[in-house]
Design a protein around this nucleic acid. Sequence first.
DNA 1: ACTCTGCCGAGAGGA
Length: 908
Amino acid sequence: MNLRGRLVEVGEEREVETQYGQRSLAEMTIRPDGVGSADATDAADGDATVRVTLWGKWTHTADLADPGMDLLVTEAEESEYRGETTYATSKESYVVLEPDFLVDVTDVRSWVQCPRMYYLNKLSGIPLNYPVVKGTVVHEVFGDLLRGRDLEDSIDERVAEAGLQLGLLGYDAGEVRDEVRRNAAAIEGWLAQGTLTGEAADAASSEWDGGPSEDEWRSEYTLISPTFGIKGRADALRRGMPVELKTGKNLKRDPRFQDKIQAAAYALVLAERGVPADTATLLYTKNTALDRNEESGDLSPAKEFSVGKGLLDFVVRKRNEIAAMEFDFSVPTGFEADARCEYCFEQDTCMVVSGRLDQESKAGQIGTPLPEDEREYFDHLYRAIEEERRETHREYRKLWEQSAEERADDDRALINLDYLDRREIAGERWELRARKPDGAVSKLREGDVCLASDGDPVGGHAELCRIRELGEEVVVTADEPVELRRLDVYPSEISVSRMLTALHDALLKGSEDRKDVLFGRRDPAFADRSAETYIDNNEAQNRAVRLAVDADDAALVHGPPGTGKTYTIARTVRALVDEGQRVLLSAFTNRAVDNALEALREQGFEDAIRVGTENGIREDMLDLHLETAGDPNDRAAELNDAPVVAATTSSCGSRMMREQSFDVALVDEASQLTEPGTLAAVNLAERFVLVGDHQQLPPVVRAENDLQESLFERLIDRYPEASVMLDRQYRMSQRIQAFSSAEFYDGALRPADGAVAAQRLSDLGVAESALPEELRDPVAFVDPDGSRVGNTNPTEADRVAEIVDAYVAAGVDPDDVGVIAPFRAQVAEISKRTDVTVDTVDRFQGSSKEVVLVSFVATGALDGPIFEDHRRVNVALTRAKKALVLVGDADALGSDPFYARMLHWARR
DNA sequence: ACTCTGCCGAGAGGA
């Protein structure tokens, strides 16, 4: 049986005499309830504790354990001792610390080389370098070969796909193709050997009947292990045994140890799925025929080795070391292993990082430590980012912990799909189709990468796929055919990793000048190089452009709703380019990046490149999109020569963008970005301009931590003189903007001119007299006397729909009406009753409508965190141009001073 | 208690 629980007490290791001789043991006390999977609670009832003895080598894990950690013992032996039921590890047992902390297989690999290498990889990311790019190409070609694809076709296409990266590294396609061809020859030679003849091609063409079966080849197998807390992707499986491809050379008789560990980790995860693998193969594809002819005779690329329980135990223990270290956010020193620093390629990096961050390390330190406030900042954000990582792991857990129905409720999956069929498509890939059940909704969108499965994404057959169509019929493409019954959002740690690298780059690679400003040691400096006038009809906008052009370090532009931020940004970019500056134009969302580009083009500027994934970019900006595939030189030149590069801040953290440098980074929506998120863009430039509004929604983070305050907000508080507030708004009538202006902008936000101030529905040809009495004021309040049911209020939803109808009946175009609600549940409720746009506040940010209705849902009292952040209300109330209707319960709204003032204003 | 956009995916190599 499996035993799992929270550690209450951790006993010391001790030696005892047994019938098998002297053995070591350590006794643990755990509280089995309330943790993890269902079988965790098999052992005991209530909050009783149980004792479990860890024998032999598992005392190593006991040594790492601390009270509070989650402990899992598989195949535990139960025995009675003086009336008490106790447990102990058996021969088959594994002991897993913090199984919910998902460790990547490659992390185990680097940890085995040196724990410090694990840390350095995590911190600084893997930079753009040729071995990685070529390695990736070879892996892709390998997968293609296994699927029976023509070798030359595959090499041509895969090398072309890596065009931009190769170009940035200064390689040309021909030489790379030749080199890949040499690696591929080793693969082909191996595939053709002895009993393997023709197998790959046979497997590829054979009928597929679900999960992996014994005699088949599989490429790119996505594996997640809830039991062992490991995830990863095996390069291939042959007859259920992992095959790991290496692009390098290994002329020794045995595989490299860390490579064995990597392959063994895949074998471990396969064992959990009931497909035990007792052998694994490492394929060193740089070993050539020439090498083979040498005397030892066994230098073929393939090295097989057996995977016994002892090796698997070792993998689990190493994985436990990582989990234990991450549990209290500690930093590995390198002393945990007996790696020899003098042979290590990372020695210099390791010493610099140790020296600058004042970390203990086996390699020693170089250089002087960063100032204390910078180190504190690092420690603080490092921890916050790691907390975010754990929240991402929770998303993984939902893949197996939630029942299908719960999963459906939380919007992150489409379940119970009716599998229709599959079809082989170009590139030896597959197109899979299924029918969606009526009314199923999810956050999945066309173009997303997600996990397609036969209904069981963890224990069954799952493949990463891309969504092509998401209508009544669901169409996805994948490398292997799955019986498509379920689609899940595939959680990714990418944004977390990128935050970490941005933090690292800012502190360890960033210029002192910039850090002085970031850490409040020096006020931002300004030169006098701007022209007098850039924008002649809006004094604040003009000042904003001048501030940005004059900034030697940083400028901050505060743009409340409707104040022409995007226009000002575009004008600023042009002014900077005119000064000969190379500009990075960035923002949190794709939408904002595209809006800024659109404004640039409207102002006649076209010389920009849009970097990012194709499906994130709006169609009318795709002509500016930088293709990553193609001739290396051309692709690299396109990027390197662009005076303006536009990308989301997330893309700025990509390997390719990290190689770019700019004079100025201009970041929109900066108030919605975490500090590390902002740094990803800021790091790439000499100077930066942040544009945002800290009175609107803050950054979205999963964990409660200090990532919630944006760099924009921190800096604007610290350096008000380096900022300009755009104070003229072009969106709302005087009546509508009054409350927001008074509450959030000290009354400084004003209509740009009389026409904006005085706009009314009659301007749209609507007869206001046709509206019910209660709606004739541009700001109205309606209390429908409903009651809150969960996060909905059906009566209020009815009333909202009636009001929408009233506006439409009076002549308002339905496209000009929008409804906003705080909860998604209420959004769904209202959507059932009307065809106009209905969305949450958060999703409405950035857009506007002539008529806006806000449904507050709450009755009786304002219970819930969603009502606590008044900035959300600011967003909701500032979407309307000519008419705004607040629909809610007067008692609830009156119970809080802020909402009471809002009510007072609305009722006037 | 609630809100939720990004990004792609994990990788490789060098004594």
